[in-house]
Write a protein that binds this DNA or RNA. Sequence first.
DNA 1: AGCTACGGAATGAACGTTCATTTTATTCCG
DNA 2: CGGAATAAAATGAACGTTCATTCCGTAGCT
Lengths: 201, 201
Amino acid sequence: MNTHSKTATAPRPRIKDKRTAILQAALKVFAEGGVNGVPMPVLAEQAGVGTGTIYRYFSSKEVLVNELFREEKLNLNKRLYANLDKSLTPKESFALVWERMVAYTREAPESYRFMELQDHRPYLDEQSRTMEHEAIAPILAYYRRLQEQGVYREDIRAEVLMALIWGAFVNLIRAERDGLFSLDQADINAARDACWSLCTG
Amino acid sequence: MNTHSKTATAPRPRIKDKRTAILQAALKVFAEGGVNGVPMPVLAEQAGVGTGTIYRYFSSKEVLVNELFREEKLNLNKRLYANLDKSLTPKESFALVWERMVAYTREAPESYRFMELQDHRPYLDEQSRTMEHEAIAPILAYYRRLQEQGVYREDIRAEVLMALIWGAFVNLIRAERDGLFSLDQADINAARDACWSLCTG
DNA sequence: AGCTACGGAATGAACGTTCATTTTATTCCG
DNA sequence: CGGAATAAAATGAACGTTCATTCCGTAGCT
């Protein structure tokens, strides 16, 4: 290879680096203080850039929040539903997704916290909301299929079932985060089984 | 009449009216726009008073939010747990409390919405948080008793069980409020039964 | 008249955003 | 190749706006 040749066609911009640094910093400070609670200069300092630099990559705080939301949403969905083995029994795949959800809250607490945050909702634009709906659709279809197979109780609509399970999980994690109790593996498994009971009647 | 005692014992004019008007207005506008989303002049206009008048009754926005929170918390608890007939079976009293919760969301939607709001939490002081804990304690004791009696599943701590049920309910109502679906009586009863299944295994 | 409650303009702090300037990277000749 | 010229990126102090809170002239009751 022509080792002495300069990277004529690859003038690597560390542009991507700063953008990523800003998003990472935003995840951290927003998860902790809420979107409304964190001024842009504080975000800039956490990211290690000047305040004005943020506006080279995101035209406003609102745009920044939306792009962050979408990236994290994609990450979460990929993480939860990738490589779901079709040969698993319904109960096994329920357990697997449950386990992945818990892992997400443990391994990416800032991302989970940010997604769970309510105070960014007024910022969310059409695109972000659409993405949210699209993420829900396949899960809903999965619930319906299990109902048709007689696994899940059929006296309740799939949307309602999903809302119950999701709410139960989110509040479980929040209660722990708020210091009401701490969860060991036995608690987490028991909660999973209880939610399974909710679905199957 | 005795004019002397009249003036002496009447240091309280219709003060109570304005205070109440402000709290009622706060409930309405905060429920809709969030605490951070509503400027004091807007609250003043809704209450039909001048901006400065608010500060005659509440020394700051924070104090106002806390007093409102505590009053609504008392109302909610009275409403949920008053006159609970001891002769009811566990399942019947579960159904009764569930019914009262739903009634609360229907009849006092602004109050419910405000209590459910997350963005007032940074404002809450020690007293408000203490009151919250005190409100939870008896319910927790009730859950424990039902576990000892073998009604509720015992493989899971009462705090965890409560967090799951509460989260499920709150998210059910929120999903409806967000327009994901609307709930008829059959849905509500089915959700109640599903949550009962969660508790009993 | 005297006193208190009231209203809403005035005030200052805090925020998101901008922009004149500095720093860093790239290009262009000799 | 080297170093000046040019362009691009980065910076943070300054700007305009918004908000909670204060202040002071006025209205109403006794």
